[in-house]
Measured scan of single mutants.
Amino acid sequence: DRIFMTRTEALEFLLKAHQTAVDKIGHPSHKQTPADHAAIEALDRLLLDVRARRVDQFQINASAAQIIVTD
């Protein structure tokens, strides 16, 4: 599946995904793992790359739809 978004929409989408990941590892019942921190770092890099126009398409994980940034 493909989803087309403007750059602004894609950045909002990534910010929400980032916040969800941060909230998940901050929850008291969740045991933090290196994979959790790696996922947040990957989202940080992706946010910067989309914002800087170095990336025009991405996929958060293998089961997610491919996001295509349109400007």
Rank of each mutant, 00 (worst) to 15 (best):
R45H: 07
R54A: 05
L48E: 15
S63H: 13
N61E: 12
T6D: 03
D49W: 05
L15F: 10
D44L: 14
I3H: 04
E41P: 02
T70A: 06
L14M: 01
R53K: 14
F13N: 01
V55A: 04
P28K: 09
T20R: 13
R54E: 04
A38D: 10
S63P: 05
F58M: 01
T70Y: 12
K16S: 07
A10F: 01
K31I: 13
V22A: 07
T33C: 07
T33P: 04
S29E: 13
T6L: 03
Q57I: 14
R2Q: 11
R51F: 11
A39S: 09
L11S: 02
I3L: 09
F4A: 04
D36S: 05
V50A: 01
D56K: 14
E41F: 05
L43W: 03
R53Q: 10
D71K: 05
D49K: 04
F58A: 00
V55T: 07
A38M: 10
E12A: 14
A17L: 14
H37P: 04
P28A: 11
K24V: 08
A17Y: 08
F13P: 00
E41M: 08
M5E: 00
R45K: 13
L11F: 04
D23K: 12
Q59M: 09
L14A: 00
Q59H: 07
L47N: 01
Q59K: 11
I3F: 06
A35D: 12
V69G: 01
L43T: 01
D49I: 03
K31A: 11
G26T: 14
L43F: 03
F4I: 06
T8K: 15
H30F: 08
R53D: 06
L43C: 02
Q57M: 13
K16E: 07
D71A: 07
A64D: 12
Q57W: 12
T8C: 07
D44V: 15
D36C: 04
S63I: 12
A65L: 12
D1Q: 04
I68D: 02
H30A: 07
L48D: 14
V22E: 04
A62P: 14
A39G: 06
D1Y: 03
M5I: 02
I67Y: 08
P28N: 08
I67N: 01
D56A: 10
D23N: 12
F4W: 07
D23E: 14
A62S: 11
H27V: 09
P28T: 08
V50Y: 01
E9A: 09
P28S: 11
Q19N: 07
F13L: 09
A42H: 13
N61S: 13
I40R: 03
L48S: 14
S29M: 09
E41S: 10
A21C: 05
E12L: 12
G26A: 12
L47V: 07
S29Q: 10
L47Y: 09
K16M: 10
I3S: 03
H27R: 12
L43N: 00
Q59D: 03
A52M: 14
V69I: 15
L47P: 00
V22M: 14
H18W: 15
I25M: 12
P34I: 08
L46Q: 01
L48M: 12
H27D: 15
I67R: 01
V69E: 02
H27W: 10
A65D: 05
L48C: 07
E41I: 12
R7W: 13
A65R: 06
I40K: 04
A42F: 14
K16F: 09
I40C: 03
V22Y: 05
R54T: 07
V22T: 10
L48Y: 06
V50K: 00
S29R: 06
D36E: 09
H18D: 00
R7L: 13
A35F: 10
L48I: 13
D23W: 03
L15R: 14
Q32L: 14
D49Q: 09
T6K: 04
E12H: 10
V50Q: 00
A39W: 13
A17W: 09
A42K: 13
L48G: 11
P28C: 06
F58E: 00
Q59S: 09
Q32H: 15
R45Q: 12
V50R: 01
I68T: 07
L14I: 10
A62W: 06
L15N: 08
S29F: 08
D71Q: 06
I68K: 04
A21Y: 13
D23Y: 03
H30I: 07
H27N: 13
Q57D: 04
P34V: 09
H18T: 05
L46T: 02
I25L: 13
A42C: 07
K24G: 06
H37L: 15
A52H: 14
R45S: 05
A17T: 06
L43A: 01
A65S: 12
A65Q: 10
A17F: 07
D1F: 02
N61G: 12
E9C: 07
A21R: 04
Q66K: 11
I25C: 04
V22S: 07
L15K: 14
E41W: 05
D71P: 07
H30D: 08
V69L: 10
P28L: 09
P34E: 11
K16Y: 08
K31W: 10
A52F: 14
M5A: 01
L11H: 02
